[in-house]
Design a protein around this nucleic acid. Structure first.
Lengths: 192, 192
DNA sequence: TAGTAATTTCAGTAATTACTGAAATGTAAA
DNA sequence: TTTACATTTCAGTAATTACTGAAATTACTA
């Protein structure tokens, strides 16, 4: 398989971007290729399309699998393994966030918690302690927020995102007004 | 300056994490050290505390400066440059997001826009085109959301984050009820 | 303006990470 | 089982990135 210039551009870009993250060029390109590919690809096809060795592709796919970003399947009368990315792009986003959280945030939070248990011995440690506490609380707030919205179904989440800060206007009314419902419920202060 | 075990742990952790991002170990450690440090540090002190060469520290500080994550100042009767991180952790977070956006998101969006201008020539390109459009729209939605909430002052943003998905309950009422204000305003359908 | 201290640059080297090809292992049909 | 692929592993090598020390530049002081 030879890549058309259109796909070429896309795939190469993700190669570059990959190396800007921790992920390497190969892995970025493989993922991009699978993402835009019409049909599932086997390792041989990927290697040929990207000009990597077969073994390199094998390692790249293993890496992607550890990120839970690929799906593997078999085709009738073909022993080779075929790979795709999830159809739903929101599944991809959610997986990415979860994995990065697991690999980057969780260990950091745990290091901070452990460190914060120690009693500061001097003013230097006192100051460091306070700064770490601040960082800990901020990360915790952000991850709690994500844990919460991540539970929403996609359609609702999209609505919330599209609303952005505008929803805050509504929130402000909570304290200014008593909101009288037209149905069974009645929203009063403290409901939220 | 010798680092106490407490600081050591913190600084080393950010070294490791740094290399998990595109940022290298040195840069991660320098930043962590400045973050927890009680007072501004000069390059010499940083080099000594972390065991790096003076020139390496110089390059690291330059890198951090390009991320706008450090502040430089002078002390009375001292020609050396002293470095700190911003006091307000929210400034740090906002800067980080902005810079990552500039370096990673914006180029990607621009590549996608350029590519999407091309007319797909076959079914393969057709499919790729559709997938790229999907990615483009999603990234745009997320960045628009960020652009929007990023304008809020920190206190409000924190409120919004703490509310999480709960605010959505309020949003739902919008369609079910007519909300009657106690002041001048009245919220009706279409206000948001 | 010369002299000195501080910082940056950069060429060379060290360390790390990426990649390959060959061998080993796994897997399914005959 | 045996055979014929398919996939993974891994040691060796290539490529990249990180780091240092010396030299050059910049900035301040006297």
């Amino acid at each position: 398989m030879k890549l058309s210039p259109l796909l070429q551009t896309f795939v190469m870009h993700f190669g570059e971007m990959g190396s800007r993250w921790g992920i390497n060029r190969t892995v970025g390109q493989i993922y991009a290729l699978l993402y835009v590919s019409e049909k599932p690809l086997n390792a041989e096809e990927i290697a040929e399309a990207l000009g990597f060795s077969r073994s390199n592709v094998s390692m790249g796919l293993k890496e992607l699998d550890s990120w839970r970003l690929t799906r593997m399947q078999h085709l009738p009368n073909d022993r080779r393994e075929y790979f795709t990315t999830p159809d739903d792009i929101w599944v991809i986003v959610r997986t990415l966030v979860e994995e990065r959280r697991k690999r980057e945030i969780d260990p950091t939070l745990s290091m901070l918690r452990d460190t914060l248990l120690q009693i500061p011995q001097n003013s230097q440690e006192e100051h460091a302690h306070a700064k770490m506490q601040e960082m800990h609380d901020l990360i915790e707030m952000l991850t709690n927020w994500y844990t919460d919205v991540q539970k929403m179904e996609t359609e609702r989440l999209v609505n919330l995102l599209k609303l952005g800060s505008k929803i805050y206007k509504l929130y402000e009314f909570k304290d200014k007004f008593t909101l009288v419902g037209g149905g069974k419920s009645k929203i009063t202060k403290g409901t939220l």
